[in-house]
């Protein structure tokens, strides 16, 4: 991996930025998210969450199962507002 490669493509967060967050003390996906906004874009972490877990594990030596995954937030995929309650009343 090159350090300037995007890990979170939706929010355009690079490997460098993720590593900086881990060095500042982030030990969970939510903690990385709070510092970088990784996992908060269109795909909501579906592509980058596992990469970030591996980076945390590599940098800290924590076993992968011990690293807390992120809080799941609905909707799982982006939903157009007209499918929800966008009608004028």
């Amino acid at each position: 991996m090159t350090e300037d490669a995007y890990i979170c493509r939706c929010e355009e967060i690079t490997g460098d930025e993720i590593m900086a967050a881990i060095r500042q003390g982030a030990r969970s996906i939510d903690a990385v998210k709070r510092r970088t906004s990784a996992c908060m874009g269109l795909c909501q972490g579906r592509s980058c969450e596992r990469l970030i877990v591996r980076l945390i594990s590599q940098e800290t030596g924590l076993p992968i199962p011990d690293i807390a995954l992120m809080t799941r937030r609905p909707p799982v995929r982006p939903i157009p507002i007209s499918a929800l309650g966008g009608e004028r009343t």
Partner: peptide
């Protein structure tokens, strides 16, 4: 909330509806 919030929001910002903006996250 997934129904009520967009309804309320598009009352004030109609473009949310006319542009059919996507919701990516609720919390």
């Amino acid at each position: 909330a997934f129904y009520a919030v967009p309804e309320l929001a598009s009352r004030y910002i109609p473009m949310l509806k006319t542009q059919n903006v996507h919701i990516i996250r609720g919390y």
